[in-house]
Write a protein that binds this DNA or RNA. Structure first.
Lengths: 111, 111
DNA sequence: TGTATATTTTACCAATTTGCCAAATATGTT
DNA sequence: AACATATTTGGCAAATTGGTAAAATATACA
């Protein structure tokens, strides 16, 4: 594979990797509605706060989220409008997959 | 985190994980244009054919691609229409990130 | 039947990612 | 300054993922 093209896909894979974790998906999903600060997200997710902070830094460095300081708190928010659409596409894939699995199960129980 | 919700994000993360690899992104990108069989993809990517086959099985099991047999060959193709859009969103993130990095570099070289 | 081609599976090791704790940093309050 | 709250960083063991070679399967054809 040509090395420039390879590099491009490497960078794009980095973005997908950032989204490839349940806690990080939940974070992004919540940030579709409103900006939130770290403690809020920590309560939602339930992991150690240092773990949540690390998830946030992965998402930030991937260019998916952004932050702003307000007093002691750091608010995180989505960076681009297309991100909810990206999530909903991956949800579609999940829904379709589930639909097919159910179909297979049903066909097995038929005469 | 509630265990049903957790499970949902776990499954969705699995889909993102499938896309979180440069070779697999390239495969999906190519399949946006037309269906292809394993040897064709192997030439494009350059990895060992067993590696390519593994990538394909990861994408298939994630519900992103589908296959059909024709003689000795197995043709792979995208499963859902929204996938090109998902890719273009992650490209947007990459482009915006790159744009900002360039901006920072330029501001450093100014008076 | 045997042979050639296309693809997948298995087994293995190296590299990466996770998640927690403890320590460090940053900001606001007294 | 001392203290409290919010967040990040560094270090480490456990779990997961990535890539290859070799073996196994599947299909077509002589």
């Amino acid at each position: 594979m040509d090395s420039n093209i390879k590099n491009k896909y490497e960078l794009q894979a980095q973005i997908m990797k950032a989204l490839a974790h349940p806690a990080r998906l939940l974070i992004v999903k919540e940030l579709c509605n409103r900006e939130m600060f770290v403690c809020e997200l920590q309560k939602l997710i339930g992991d150690d706060i240092s773990t949540v902070s690390k998830h946030l830094s992965i998402l930030k460095q991937a260019g998916i989220i952004d932050d702003r300081k307000e007093g002691l708190r750091i608010y995180y928010r989505l960076k681009l409008k297309c991100i909810p659409m990206l999530l909903s596409c991956s949800e579609n894939i999940l829904i379709e997959k589930t639909r097919e699995e159910i179909e297979i199960l049903q066909s097995l129980s038929k005469p």
